[in-house]
Simulated scan of single mutants.
Amino acid sequence: MKQVIIATKNEGKAKEFKDFFEPYNINAVSLLELPDNIPDIEETGGTFEENAALKAETITDLLGTPVLADDSGLVIDSLDGRPGIFSARYAGETKDDQANIQKVLYELENVTTEKRTARFVCVLAISIPNKETIFCKGTCDGSIASFPEGEHGFGYDPIFVPKGYSKTMAELTPSEKNNISHRKNAIIQLEDWLKGIY
């Protein structure tokens, strides 16, 4: 089985990528499964693309192996695109999903339903030794609910209602979410690359 390193220590994200890669007979190994000597890479980029490339290329340089990194976040139109690249730490330096959700809901307190449009964005960067980094971008359009609902997923899933649905991402089953997620839409673009490489 071929292997690709997934540059994440987020268990939820790691599992989603494992599920996505399994049909291609590719073993996706997250940073959680590697020795602890891989440093946390500071996301100093100004865009999703820059941050994803930074992570993928740094780890490829360290390990000399193909690495896939993603940078993803929630873009809310009425907040001028925030939280955007700061989605994971929107409420502070410690990653706290609940605090992030509460901050978004507070900022949208007086915003009407039709103006609560938003999208999840995912940019994948695939770094292969001695080759140019490949990028794929996926989005999932929707809107922000007035309060959290649902037990599944992670991050902002409990307040994000995908377009065409009447329930939040966190109320969908994992397979329902995987079919429409921004990450899935980015990975669809990888299919030709996967077939070519593997």
Rank of each mutant, 00 (worst) to 15 (best):
Q189L: 12
G81I: 05
R116A: 07
S143T: 14
I128Q: 09
W193Q: 11
I38N: 06
A52V: 06
P35E: 15
V29M: 14
L54A: 15
G142D: 10
R183H: 00
K184L: 03
N37G: 08
A170L: 02
F21G: 03
M1G: 15
Q98V: 02
S78P: 00
N100K: 11
T8C: 15
A69E: 01
L190A: 08
F21V: 08
T44V: 10
V161C: 12
S87D: 03
L68A: 04
F135D: 15
E109W: 09
K2F: 13
Y90S: 05
I134T: 15
K103I: 04
T65K: 13
E49W: 01
K184R: 10
G84L: 04
A88V: 00
K18H: 13
E11P: 13
I188K: 07
D71K: 05
D97A: 06
S143D: 12
L74N: 04
I85P: 01
E22A: 13
E114D: 14
R116Y: 07
L105S: 04
F21Q: 08
G64A: 13
E93P: 00
Q189K: 15
L62K: 08
P148C: 12
L108C: 06
A7P: 10
N185D: 06
Q102E: 10
Q189N: 11
T113G: 07
S127P: 05
R82H: 07
Y198I: 13
N185I: 06
D192F: 01
P158V: 03
C136N: 05
G142V: 05
Y90F: 15
L105D: 02
I197S: 14
A7S: 15
K115T: 06
N185A: 07
K18M: 15
M1Y: 13
P162C: 07
N179P: 03
P129I: 06
I41M: 13
F20T: 00
A56D: 13
E33I: 14
K167V: 07
F120Y: 08
V104F: 02
N178I: 01
I180K: 05
L31C: 12
